[in-house]
């Protein structure tokens, strides 16, 4: 194999490992907000790693450039999805984990939870 394929496979391996860790976080963390932490961060980084690995393997061809262009879109959309899920959950009154330290958002909101 050529050197760029080796490097590409190593980066893809990193990406898959972080995706797996994100899934593990999704299972292990106690409440929805912490689970979103694992889901957004690790999965975004892992997916970007896979896409960048594909770019390294293919170089400046149509395939590689498409993977590279997809990275900003993942970076832009994944946090927005997490924000929408977390805000919706909080507005509908999903409680934080009982050992949570502080919740300024709840103190500042005037309206009652809708559930």
């Amino acid at each position: 194999m050529a050197w760029n394929e080796w490097i590409g496979f190593i980066i893809i391996g990193f990406g898959v490992a972080f995706d797996a860790l994100g899934c593990l976080g999704l299972l292990r963390f106690p409440d929805i907000y912490n689970r979103l932490q694992g889901a957004t961060k690790c999965v975004t980084f892992g997916t970007c790693g896979i896409l960048f690995g594909i770019f390294v393997m293919n170089g400046f061809t149509g395939f590689g450039i498409k993977a590279l262009v997809a990275i900003p879109f993942v970076l832009l959309t994944s946090p927005v999805g997490a924000h929408a899920l977390a805000r919706g959950a909080h507005i509908f009154g999903v409680p934080l984990w009982e050992k949570s330290v502080v919740d300024h958002y709840k103190q500042d909101r005037k309206d009652k939870p809708r559930l």
């Binding site: 976080g25 292990r28 907000y33 694992g38 980084f45 949570s100 958002y105």
Partner: peptide, 26 residues
């Protein structure tokens, strides 16, 4: 910063006691 964040979260996921102190700050 993003790479640092990922190693941090990965450490918290893998640690058997899960060293997290979650909360919402302003």
């Amino acid at each position: 910063e993003m790479a640092k964040a990922n190693f941090d979260v990965a450490y918290r996921v893998l640690h058997p006691k899960m060293p997290i102190h979650p909360g919402i700050v302003k």
